[in-house]
């Protein structure tokens, strides 16, 4: 299970972030508070991605080849998630 959590962690952060944002936009359409809420949730998601990145970068040098591979995959996933999360929040600023 731990291995799956590492592999999918970053992407799961994106998914959680996305659905919370969708919920906010649907529940409070056109309200200014929605934008602030989006930014707060986004900061939390960025922190979570950062945490995964930080944990996996060290683990990439593990002796066990598969563990290192999985850690690197998880790290890449978190990095991609980070980009997607930032994009995801762009509408709250640009629109």
């Amino acid at each position: 299970m731990r291995a799956w959590a590492i592999v999918l962690g970053g992407l799961a952060v994106w998914a959680a972030h996305f659905f919370v944002l969708y919920g906010i936009a649907s529940a409070m359409p056109g309200r200014v508070g929605a934008r602030w809420l989006v930014l707060i949730v986004t900061l939390a998601a960025i922190a979570a991605d950062g945490l995964i990145l930080w944990r996996t970068i060290g683990a990439g040098r593990r002796a066990d080849a598969l563990e290192a591979w999985i850690a690197r995959l998880g790290g890449l996933g978190a990095a991609l998630s980070l980009v997607a999360v930032v994009w995801q929040a762009a509408p709250a600023v640009a629109m």
Partner: peptide
């Protein structure tokens, strides 16, 4: 749909083209 929702889906649609 509300503009903000549309924006979220547009952003995700961009992200999905990266992979």
């Amino acid at each position: 749909m509300p503009t903000l929702s549309i924006g979220f889906f547009a952003a995700a649609s961009m992200a999905v083209s990266l992979p």
